[in-house]
Computed example of a mutant assay.
Amino acid sequence: MKTSQMVMVPGLLSTAEVYRSQTKAWGGSVLVAETRLDDTIEGMAWRLLERASDRFLLCGHSMGGYVALEVLRLAPERVSGLALIATSAWPDTPEQTALRGRLVQLAQDRGIEQAAKLLEPKLFAAGTATEELRRLNISMSAEIGTEVFVRQQAAIIGRRDQRPLLATIGVPTIVVSGTADAVIPAERSHEMAAAIPAAELVMLGGIGHMVPLEAPQDTDAALATLAARVAAA
């Protein structure tokens, strides 16, 4: 791969471990964005921009995709290529916001592990939910903790509608989604790929929401493809 910096943005309740395969496969420098300190997506995006190199490739999974799109809104000239994985440009719906409130209350009352266990069936497709991935999910959630979970949920609830941004994205883009994603419907990826002028859509059959962990080799390949497109541009 090219040696450009890749900035990887984790999703809700995820640490750098969610990108363990991609970090190992990437041939250049890797920065895993800090998503634990801010209670707005814009704040996370500004923190990323403060730490990243002048120009970089950008990869966001789930909540990380919300941050990645905000980075494109704030500083499009800094991004040379974009990977959007199991994410959406839509704002939160009232139903989603209500569910997040219940999850926050559960985490505060009974602990973050209980909230993580409740979320687990939606995160992994039936055929990918190995015991190792279940343990990793709980481990990442425990490391994130309840306080950060509350901040991250507040940031997600307050995120802006990024659909108007999509048509302005002028860099090579790859949109990756699992057909069995029970968190963000696959049609959101179809919509984004159709709206972004330089986007390529990769649909992974039988894969759920945690694409980088459930389909690590496919995710590695998608990022390699993106890097090749950026190099050729």
Rank of each mutant, 00 (worst) to 15 (best):
A52Q: 02
A125K: 04
E70M: 11
M203A: 15
W26K: 02
G145W: 00
A228W: 00
E70S: 09
E143C: 12
I144Y: 00
D39G: 01
V175E: 01
M44K: 03
V30Y: 00
M192N: 04
E214A: 08
S62C: 12
A195F: 01
L82C: 11
F124N: 04
F149N: 10
Q217A: 15
D109C: 06
Y19I: 09
R20A: 13
L57E: 12
N137S: 14
R20I: 08
I169Y: 02
L103C: 09
L166T: 04
M140A: 08
R78D: 08
S4Y: 00
S139T: 15
A75V: 05
V211K: 00
R78H: 14
I184P: 03
H209E: 09
D92E: 14
A154L: 11
L13Q: 05
R229T: 07
Q217D: 14
G206L: 13
S29D: 14
D92F: 00
Q152F: 00
H209S: 09
F124G: 07
L31D: 01
A224P: 05
Q22A: 13
L37N: 11
L58Q: 07
R135H: 07
L57Q: 11
H61C: 09
G60T: 10
L12K: 03
L82E: 10
E120F: 05
Q108S: 13
E50Q: 12
G178Y: 02
A83Y: 00
E34Q: 09
R100T: 09
Q96G: 11
A228C: 01
A228Y: 00
A227C: 06
A89P: 02
P216V: 14
E131A: 11
A227Q: 05
T146M: 07
W90N: 14
L213C: 02
T3H: 05
F124P: 02
C59Y: 01
E17H: 09
L226H: 06
A180F: 08
I138T: 13
S53P: 05
Q162N: 15
V202E: 14
G64L: 03
P197W: 08
A228K: 08
